[in-house]
Write a protein that binds this DNA or RNA. Structure first.
Lengths: 344, 344
DNA sequence: CCGAAGTAGGAAAACGCTTGCTATCCACAC
DNA sequence: GTGTGGATAGCAAGCGTTTTCCTACTTCGG
């Protein structure tokens, strides 16, 4: 278009070029309820095309008071769990014409708070908190930030942790893990080790509780140990390596609080010269894409992550919204990492 | 924190609360070269804290003419390859106080063009194009958009594909794949099948060329077939499944153009009842995290993806920038998927 | 004690856009 | 010919910042 321009074309340029007023140009180009005569419309449109005009979103945002942005906070975008969620968010945002801004909390509450504060400055339509955060009181600062944000007219949406004035897409970690525990007990497992995150982290706690419930139901299984690690592959690896050094009986089941953790566990088992499956069984949670491709396949609970992201986005944008729409469907998926085990 | 506020506090509110002028408040809060007396500074700062003020970035952007944003275009954020790159970009952006906005091209040139156009509206500091894009002429529209963007003062950075006025972080696909091909030929492989993407996609073409060069050097190996798929796991799976249906000789090496593809290939091999390694060997490129955890481990070329993302970001923000800084170090990593093979 | 240099606060003009309101035009009915 | 009303173009006042001037006040040398 106009390679000589020192800076991007403005609406003013377009209006001048088309010989109409600023107001008219605005109405033609940036969706307004008001009608504009066809002849004017054409003039404006061709002027805009000629100048390669795009609306300055910042200016639009200041004028309108709100930006066409939704901010997404995840713990780690390289983690496939968050990657898949982000993917769903992005798809939904694209559909409704929003831009998504991403921020990485690194699972640090302090950092999360600062990020919310920074993002607040964008005046985004909404804030999606997908990062597992603690219920600790150090969340006070965060809550204050969130309140300020809501007061400013933004919408906060969280994953799995609902509260009064915050929309939230529920993920029934407890029910899911419970089914998993039960299914595995029924497959013949009697002793399990759980590798979770620190106490106080909601997601972790729920998954541990749920799994324990299911696995020990009817007095079938017993939880031998609960090890505290984190949500990463390396945390799983390290925790498992230590356990193995202390000795793990054949036929034990190790439940990693997430697939990522479980995958770390599998690697540790192999590196310790043991084998995954009949020797030591492993199960995870989430069903990230990788789980399909490793051998033996990882037994897990399928969470429709992309769909989850999509719903999170809609919880932000939809005006009327029902917290109790059909909950995300969780499904136990048994693969080779937990072969059927003959009960003695 | 003022929970009663109907909307977010503005700089005006802060100035009034502190009893100073708008100008002074601005100077105190949002970095200015000018000095402000300590007493005023304190008044303003405490007023800001009291009201929970955060600068309205949009307004700031309109006033300054540019936003503290960098936009990142990737093909698919759920793909670990892009996830790791994004992670590096995010880290760098965080360090210099930029917000990153993310957009998904789905590897569609049309879409990519529209996204650039939309993102241009944000007047971001820069645009990072990490998605492999074609060199086809249908890139004309894209180039026009990019020109407009640069004309407006933004900086475009691409991955691996340099051109005159666009900064680019080079990734020597050709050299990397060539070393890989050579290493595998030396390990005793003589017949290889390549699974690549469509012709005309630069990254794919380079990797195919490089691998061929290395593998056939000194007349050691022969490329049996080049199959055209895409950059996804499923593309790899499908392509491999078809090949296997037609019959693949024992001892053949399959080179998947990226780890993601190679992993799909591995799954297809297993699903066809064959085994990965001594039966059919597999190699990939990128060294995504998953490669460590699958068994056998995937032979590949290590690309420091996170670092790559970090450099991309710096190519955007750094004022003086040297295209020829130490290139990304690529390293062939041989794992179990390509066991040593006795030469007949 | 005067005038020349700084200093630093404040008024007001941008920045690019939206939008409430006014003004103009035209058609139609009486 | 006048009055009424429905369109629709354009003026101008915002939106929340930054930044350029302008000005009043200090400070300091002579």
């Amino acid at each position: 278009m106009n390679p000589l321009a020192r800076s991007a074309a403005t609406l003013n340029d377009v209006a001048r070029e088309a010989g109409v007023s600023l107001a008219t140009a605005s109405r033609v180009l940036n969706g307004s309820a008001r009608k504009v005569a066809e002849s004017y419309r054409e003039r404006v449109e061709s002027a805009a095309a000629k100048l390669g005009y795009t609306a300055n979103l910042s200016a639009q945002a200041t004028a309108r008071g709100t930006a066409a942005i939704v901010a997404l906070l995840v713990a780690d975008i390289a983690d496939p769990y968050f990657g898949q969620i982000a993917s769903g968010v992005a798809r939904g945002a694209d559909e409704v014409g929003l831009v998504v801004t991403i921020a990485i909390t690194e699972r640090d509450a302090q950092r999360e708070m600062k990020l919310v504060r920074a993002l607040r400055g964008q005046r985004p339509r909404g804030l999606i908190l997908a990062a597992s955060r603690t219920d600790q009181t150090d969340a006070a600062g965060l809550n204050a930030e969130l309140d300020s944000f809501t007061a400013g007219g933004g919408r906060v949406v969280t994953l799995g942790r609902s509260s009064a004035d915050v929309r939230s897409v529920p993920l029934d970690n407890r029910a899911g893990t419970s089914s998993l525990g039960l299914a595995l007990a029924e497959r013949g497992y009697r002793e399990a080790i759980i590798i979770g995150a620190a106490e106080g982290i909601r997601t972790s706690d729920d998954r541990i509780t749920g799994f324990t419930e299911g696995f020990t139901a009817n007095g079938l299984g017993t939880i031998r140990t609960i090890v505290r690690g984190g949500f990463t592959r390396d945390a799983g690896y390290t925790a498992a390596a230590e356990l193995l050094a202390d000795g793990v009986a054949e036929g034990t089941l190790v439940f990693g609080i997430s697939d990522v953790v479980a995958i770390g566990v599998m690697s540790a088992i192999r590196d310790a010269g043991r084998s995954v499956g009949t020797d030591i069984a492993v199960a995870g949670f989430d069903d990230i894409a990788t789980g399909r491709d490793i051998r033996p396949g990882l037994t897990t609970v399928r969470v429709p992550l992309e769909e989850l992201g999509y719903r999170l986005l809609h919880a932000v944008v939809d005006d009327e919204w029902d917290a109790s729409t059909a909950p995300l469907e969780l499904e136990v998926i048994v693969r080779g990492s937990t072969p059927e085990r003959a009960t003695r």
